[in-house]
């Protein structure tokens, strides 16, 4: 019993982290239709930025969020303008190749500049945890979990009550109609991509107290994020949140019940089954047509 509670808690908390990372990816896909294979590298950049601010200016990671997130927003904007916009109506294969190329460039540029060393930010709260109801709660992960909920709520409000938010929703639903209604599609794409990058920026900052950063860290989270995005329905933010939690729990249980090494196999198989049986994902809309 004690095990069950602990495994569920660990799984859910990890799921919160996954959800945060997946949210940016799904937002970008939902609006622009682009699967960003460099998403993991954006996470890496955010983590390095957090580390740098801590190392040079001594900023606490949680405070550096006010610098890192806008920075990621700007980086996302620039990348979108330079290389996503020209291929926005290109075939999927081209888009995938472009972002895969970007991923190679970013990971190896980081290797060139930062070397392969792993770096961490030491904080007083990094290893703290809380005993509650028979289970341990890791504090930074709880913060991440809460942040994921806040982020989802903020997006809900943003989509519902602001012009830009509604324009994004409209574009995601029907690009042509939105265009006819006078929405500047180009700007919306840029905004969505930048928001998605900012989102992964939040994730990068919040996991810095518990993880190490090194140039290939992106690949550690990237595949999981893809699975979650598909699970929740591509382009569905709330789906990404639920999908994240689900994968976190599935991972924890399959690691415990089957073997730690097969937990990926379990969720990949679930992933393939869901794709085949219900390609639109658990909460998905109908498949986006390009």
């Amino acid at each position: 019993m004690e095990n069950i509670i602990q495994i569920t808690v660990s799984g859910l908390l990890m799921g919160g982290i996954y959800a945060m990372i997946a949210m940016g990816l799904t937002l970008i896909f939902g609006v622009t239709g682009i699967v960003n294979f460099a998403h993991g590298e954006f996470l890496m950049v955010a983590m390095f930025a957090t580390w740098g601010l801590n190392n040079v200016l001594g900023l606490d990671p949680y405070i550096s969020i006010i610098i890192v997130v806008p920075l990621m927003f700007i980086i996302g904007m620039l990348v979108e303008k330079a290389m996503i916009q020209p291929i926005i109506s290109a075939p999927h294969s081209m888009q995938i190749m472009a972002t895969a190329g970007l991923s190679t460039v970013m990971a190896n540029a980081a290797l060139m500049i930062m070397q392969a060393d792993y770096r961490s930010v030491v904080t007083s709260y990094g290893t703290k945890s809380l005993m509650l109801g028979g289970a341990m709660f890791n504090i930074p992960k709880v913060v991440g979990f809460v942040a994921a909920i806040i982020l989802t709520s903020l997006f809900y409000l943003f989509f519902k009550y602001t012009y830009s938010g509604r324009a994004i929703t409209a574009t995601a639903q029907n690009m042509k109609a939105a265009k006819l209604m006078g929405v500047n599609i180009k700007n919306i794409y840029t905004l969505a991509f930048a928001l998605g990058s900012a989102c992964v920026g939040v994730a990068g900052v919040l996991i810095m107290p518990i993880y190490y950063v090194f140039p290939s860290i992106g690949t550690y989270f990237c595949t999981t994020a893809f699975v979650i995005v598909v699970l929740g329905g591509m382009g569905n933010l709330y789906g990404a949140f639920l999908g994240g939690l689900l994968i976190g729990v599935v991972e924890a249980y399959s690691g415990f019940l089957i073997a730690p090494v097969f937990k990926e196999v379990v969720y990949f198989i679930i992933f393939i089954i869901i794709l085949v049986v219900r390609p639109s994902g658990l909460l998905g809309k109908t498949t986006r047509s390009s």
Partner: peptide, 20 residues
């Protein structure tokens, strides 16, 4: 005798298994 991937982002299930 448990293997795990060095790329795993979470090892709590391994720890729980060992605890058992």
């Amino acid at each position: 005798c448990e293997a795990y991937s060095a790329k795993a982002a979470d090892l709590s299930s391994l720890v729980m298994k060992l605890k058992n």
